[in-house]
């Protein structure tokens, strides 16, 4: 636990530095010739979207590890990551909506990318609700792990929605090396903000993992006390 706290502190410091640099670069970046300064919204929107997918991928991996190896650490990490992923998804949807109003003329459209992203947020909320629906921690862990694995089907749908269907949402801004549609001065702040958001995600998952592990320890001590006094 102490080692986790040390790592969390280091990641936290790196996050603050990178976020400050990324924010400064985002606000100093040149305007887009069509979008004007609304392009700055994308420096928060795109990294949030990437993180909501990456965190779900992590939750899926941790869920598989839990079901396969019966590892409590994997279950703690899965439980800790879900609210963080939900927050990234919520910010993605809200920031996309705020960007969409001036650019598309609408806060929301039932477009394949937007709808599949909304489904991801609903899955995250469903995972939190399902875990809280059980008194037995073991059953809760197994049920949420199964739902998380089933829910992973939404990831390729989100990723490929812009190519599989004719959508209002533009294709991915950057999709790995050599598949970048954003040019030079607008790209650098996006990459820095993306790196900062990856660190922010790791920081929040580590922090939540400490909360979940400590809460479980307190609960087991409370159960022990109740057993001794009962």
């Amino acid at each position: 636990m102490q080692r986790l706290a040390k790592w969390q502190l280091l990641v936290g410091l790196a996050t603050v530095i990178l976020l400050a640099v990324g924010l400064w670069m985002s606000l100093a970046a040149p305007l887009d010739f069509q979008q004007g300064n609304s392009v700055r919204i994308l420096y928060a929107h795109v990294p949030s979207a990437k993180m909501s997918l990456l965190i779900y991928l992590f939750v899926t991996g941790a869920s598989i590890a839990f079901l396969w190896k019966k590892s409590e650490t994997a279950d703690i990490l899965a439980e800790a990551a879900v609210p963080v992923g939900a927050a990234f998804s919520a910010v993605t949807l809200a920031s996309g909506s705020i960007w969409g109003k001036p650019m598309w003329g609408a806060w929301w459209a039932w477009d394949a990318r937007l709808t599949s992203m909304l489904v991801l947020l609903i899955i995250y909320v469903g995972l939190m609700a399902l875990r809280n629906a059980f008194d037995d921690q073991g059953k809760a862990a197994r049920a949420t792990a199964v739902l998380a694995i089933i829910g992973a089907i939404d990831l390729p749908i989100i990723h490929y929605s812009v190519t599989w269907w004719r959508t209002l949402h533009q294709p991915a801004s950057f999709d790995g090396p050599g598949k970048i549609s954003v040019q030079g001065p607008l790209l650098t702040p996006l990459l820095v903000m993306s790196a900062a958001f990856i660190l922010l995600g790791i920081y929040l998952v580590l922090l939540n993992a400490r909360v979940v592990a400590t809460r479980r320890r307190v609960e087991s001590l409370e159960d022990e006390e109740a057993w001794n006094h009962g």
């Binding site: 924010l23 979008q35 004007g36 300064n37 609304s38 700055r40 919204i41 928060a44 929107h45 949030s48 910010v91 809200a94 920031s95 705020i98 960007w99 109003k101 001036p102």
Partner: peptide, 13 residues
């Protein structure tokens, strides 16, 4: 000028 939209997003985040 879309500054209010930009500020809303950064504030929300």
């Amino acid at each position: 000028d879309y500054t209010p939209y930009v500020m809303a997003v950064y504030g929300l985040a």
